[in-house]
């Protein structure tokens, strides 16, 4: 089993995500500089957080138009897994993997804060190690993380169980008061229809070691590993 973490110019969570996968979860992981393209098949690809191309134009907009995204598109069409975290989620949304987009926060400042999110669908390759409704403690760190989509798209996401995570309080109540960035329906993790792409704003790699304050996010990676092992 081999994973890849894609490095764009301006990615800055690439080493962190590599560390969480390789050192914490024990899965062989390559760091791929975007100009190199994908030279082999990978079981799962992670686009990490950061500021690809400095967030110029719009977060993720330029990276989404680089040639390596064609390789990643083929990977996804083959049914293999893609996880986009933070800037990776913005790039994924710009690439059209899910409906809707991540835009500037309701209070238009960067926000770095530990929050709680609730697992809305535990039956996906990214969430199988969680219980449905499980609440995890995990940090967010973004300026353009407010998920928005048309009412019709949101209805379809709900119907198809494409919502992976929502902001919530300690008890799991996803009330608007818990929403740090103004995302529609507190949504902060979205799946594609086929459930092999997950785009999320919170940083699971920052919640994968007890010493850093939480291991709750590690199960995203362990779910992926479990899914690949089970195939």
């Amino acid at each position: 089993m081999r994973f890849a973490v894609i490095q764009f110019g301006g990615s800055n969570c690439d080493q962190d995500t590599h560390h969480a996968l390789q050192d914490v979860c024990g899965v062989d992981t390559d760091l791929i500089w975007y100009k190199e393209g994908l030279r082999r098949k990978y079981d799962a690809i992670v686009i990490p957080g950061g500021f690809s191309y400095g967030d110029y134009l719009r977060a993720g907009a330029i990276a989404a138009r680089t040639p390596i995204m064609q390789d990643i598109l083929r990977h996804v069409r083959d049914g293999r897994l893609l996880l986009g975290i933070c800037n990776g989620a913005q790039i994924g949304a710009e690439s059209g993997f899910v409906p809707g987009t991540f835009t500037i926060n309701a209070y238009p400042k960067f926000i770095c804060r530990w929050v709680r999110i609730r697992v809305e669908n535990a039956g996906t390759p990214f969430t199988s190690q969680y219980r449905e409704g499980e609440v995890m403690r995990i940090p967010i760190a973004h300026k353009e993380g407010r998920y928005i989509a048309t009412p019709a798209d949101v209805a379809a996401l709900n119907k198809n169980r494409q919502i992976a995570f929502r902001f919530c309080d300690e008890t799991g109540d996803p009330s608007p008061q818990t929403n740090p960035n103004g995302s529609v329906e507190q949504i902060t993790g979205v799946l594609n229809e086929r459930k092999n792409v997950l785009l999320m704003m919170p940083h699971p790699e920052r919640a994968s070691e007890k010493i850093l304050g939480s291991e709750d996010g590690k199960k995203v990676f362990l779910s992926i590993i479990d899914h690949m092992e089970g195939r």
């Binding site: 800055n12 969570c13 080493q15 962190d16 560390h19 969480a20 957080g49 400042k109 960067f110 926000i111 770095c112 804060r113 940090p139 760190a141 940083h203 790699e205 920052r206 070691e209 010493i211 850093l212 304050g213």
Partner: peptide
């Protein structure tokens, strides 16, 4: 102030 700074990146901040 400090919520506008990404204080967790690089996975060292305890």
């Amino acid at each position: 102030v400090y919520e506008q700074y990404d204080h967790d990146v690089q996975l060292r901040t305890i």
